[in-house]
Design a binder for these strands. Structure first.
Lengths: 186, 186, 186, 186
DNA sequence: AATGAATGAGGATTCATTCAT
DNA sequence: GATGAATGAATCCTCATTCAT
């Protein structure tokens, strides 16, 4: 049964299962056994691939961040004007690839976990820094206080994430952010 | 040593210890034993007073919500104009009584936990509803789309909370929100 | 509130509550707190009167045995012929005072507990000895093998107790025993 | 050390250890840890195989019942006449395989536990029903009141069990039952 | 590569019991 | 006499992790 070259598939399945499990069960009740079962393999194999539960969850987080990062880069490449760059960032944040229920839940839990010092915090701060820098870069030609506006845009995006995680957020959060930007630049 | 009438003090000490422990250790690693030790008593006594870990954490959440609610009510009572009402709500959100490090961390964890159905979710949704209704009520005389603006203000507040929980948020988040409101009403 | 001379009532209430609790919850789940609550007082008071849980349960057992003993003595006094003596013993065993549901359940649990060396076993063996000796004494004028018949009568009584404890025993167990005796003496 | 296919052995060892532990310690003081130690493994492994203490004890009970059932079936198969059938049932009840000290003690505790509604009670009632039906079937050709006699035989068997559990029962309980039957059929 | 077997280290919870009042 | 307060010790159970196969 064991075929060679399964490693990437196995790792991927585990990462996806981890995200789904966080969403379904809550970070507090996530166990290696449950993740492994969801991914269709034994807990021992999960350990074989990731070495520890922490590293597995970290891989899940990296996956979420990298999906987001890829989305941003792709859209930024296509953007021509500063305004388009802004829209690209906002659109990436709410793109279906990382605004699915599972992923939003995972984000929220990463935030909670990032309270403690460690890799999660480091990664999340890195994400924050990049988001801010992207925003500031796009805003610089449009306003003379790019930092302040970037801050509020970033906070707004995070707030909408949080609310989405609980259900009951606005239907079109991206529109809400664009509105905010428009008014601020007016 | 055992004097009568200790219940309120003990419960209070446990609630405070629970909040501190969530902030210090992260919700995932909070144990009854740690909370009890921090509150200066045995785990058995903690159970005696709260019956279960869940009920203890729920009491902590209720405490946080009630502190916030009291802050809002107190400031709303003093407000005269719609604009003052708005400022009152914003100020309450960032008042020192519930913007301390511990409390902000607790909020974040409550959000993460509220993903799962249960009392936490119910309480948090109730808080959301009240906040929105307070905002809409204050905004109605000031704009013709009070719901949309309320939504964005609420999201902004939550986003600033999240960022505060991680450190590195803006120095004066209330100012940022007031700025947002001003621009939106202009 | 505390009146003097309450001791006998208190002790009695606890003994009765213990028996009821054994029947209702099963010996494994009997706790001092539950017994005390059922008897309308605090666990601490129960300890005050009995010193320990074991001693309390032992008192309950002694109560059951003494009720049975009193019943036997009363009926034996009234009996005139050997045959009447036999009937007296059988009737006492199934008299309502110790064939109530609670009491039967308690008996069964005492048997289970008497496996271990200790006071319970001592008391139960004493009961066995007395029962056998009473039976043998009554049987001696009626048969030349009184010991064997006494043995089978005693076993039959115990068996009927066991079955009564589970429900579904015969309606009139005493009649069944009398039948057995009659046939054996015929 | 871990070889594959250990499950049956482990389960068996635990069941046997549970029976021995009930006999040695009394059902009230049986702990998973003690059973596991006696069976030569960790408590965690015991849980791994049985899921819970209750299910483990239930398995022990099922084992005892099935040993008895097998004994009865084997002897009934060999029996030719109604009288032989009766003797087969009685002999099975006191066969060494389920009249050993351990097993008798376990029976007694199952009885005590069967007071509470649950699987134990269900199984024990099933055993009662089968025993009665076997007896009635064997008695029908021999007497015109098979039910009544079956009842008394069953009660006698149970009573002898109870007494055996405490030590001090008759040396040859089966003979006593056969005697009872003989006289009743005379 | 893959897994069943196995466990040590906890974690929530319960409870008999003690003590000051 | 009576009780609320308090806890140490134990119990069941879970889980990440390791290991032989």
């Amino acid at each position: 049964m064991p075929r060679t070259g399964m490693e990437p598939q196995r790792r991927n399945a585990l990462v996806r299962a981890a995200i789904a499990e966080i969403a379904a069960t809550g970070a507090a009740d996530v166990t290696v056994a449950r993740i492994a079962r969801r991914a269709g393999m034994s807990p021992a194999l999960a350990h074989h691939y990731f070495g520890s539960k922490d590293r597995m969850l970290l891989a899940a987080m990296r996956h979420v961040l990298s999906v987001y990062g890829a989305e941003v880069r792709a859209r930024l490449t296509a953007a021509r004007t500063p305004r388009e760059r802004l829209d690209a960032i906002v659109a990436a944040s709410f793109a279906s690839s990382n605004f699915e229920d599972d992923v939003v839940a995972a984000w929220l839990n990463f935030y909670a976990q990032a309270r403690q010092p460690g890799e999660t915090r480091r990664l999340l701060r890195l994400y924050h820094k990049r988001l801010r820098s992207n925003l500031v870069h796009a805003l610089r030609p449009l306003t003379d206080r790019p930092e302040a506006l970037a801050e509020s845009i970033a906070a707004l995006i995070d707030g909408l994430y949080v609310r989405a995680a609980l259900g009951g957020g606005p239907t079109d959060p991206a529109a809400l952010v664009r509105d905010h930007i428009e008014r601020a630049l007016a």
